[in-house]
């Protein structure tokens, strides 16, 4: 398993008549976003008389996005375009994991623990990470942030795990 995307052309699962898969999928996704916005704003009030209701503008722009997404997808059908760039999994996975862990841990465990742990989780996103070095830098960063945010910037946040303070 390699985490760097390979340059070899990916076998396309799309039908042959799609000449620019990148644009085609991109356009479809925009259309999906537009349809979702239309659905999400369907319960809002529309025009009453000549004044806008809460739902008028969102629906207007959603329809516009639907048309634009359709146009992008159409370009993908009619014009030769690039293939979908290969994704790698390692970076996105560990960076997201670090972010989610931080969000879950900051309240119960405090800044010191969650920042340090999130640093190490994020560091797993690269196979070049050297652990001793990462632990030292992570510790320094944690100390720096623990001083910077609450004291220098005056933004209060929990520092240590709740069960230790009580």
């Amino acid at each position: 398993m390699s985490d760097t995307p390979s340059e070899a052309p990916v076998k396309s699962i799309l039908p042959k008549w799609v000449r620019g898969p990148q644009d085609f999928i991109g356009g479809l996704a925009m259309m999906a976003v537009a349809l979702f916005a239309l659905w999400a704003s369907s319960d809002l009030q529309g025009m009453h008389g000549f004044s806008f209701g809460a739902g008028t503008a969102p629906r207007m722009f959603a329809v516009l996005l639907l048309l634009l997404g359709g146009a992008v997808a159409l370009v993908g059908i009619l014009k030769d375009g690039p293939h979908i760039a290969p994704y790698s999994w390692r970076g996105p996975l560990f960076v997201s994991a670090a972010i989610v862990f931080f969000a879950l841990a900051i309240r119960p465990l405090g800044l010191v623990v969650s920042a340090f742990a999130a640093f190490l989780i994020a560091a797993m996103g690269s196979h070049e990470t050297k652990w001793i070095e990462a632990i030292i830098v992570g510790a320094c960063l944690t100390v720096g942030c623990a001083l910077l945010f609450p004291y220098v910037l005056g933004l209060p946040m929990p520092m240590f795990p709740r069960f230790l303070i009580q």
Binding site: A98, F102, A122, A123, V137, G138, L141
Partner: peptide, 8 residues
């Protein structure tokens, strides 16, 4: 990783 944590 430092940027990730700092941003979070």
């Amino acid at each position: 990783p430092s940027i990730v944590v700092f941003c979070a």
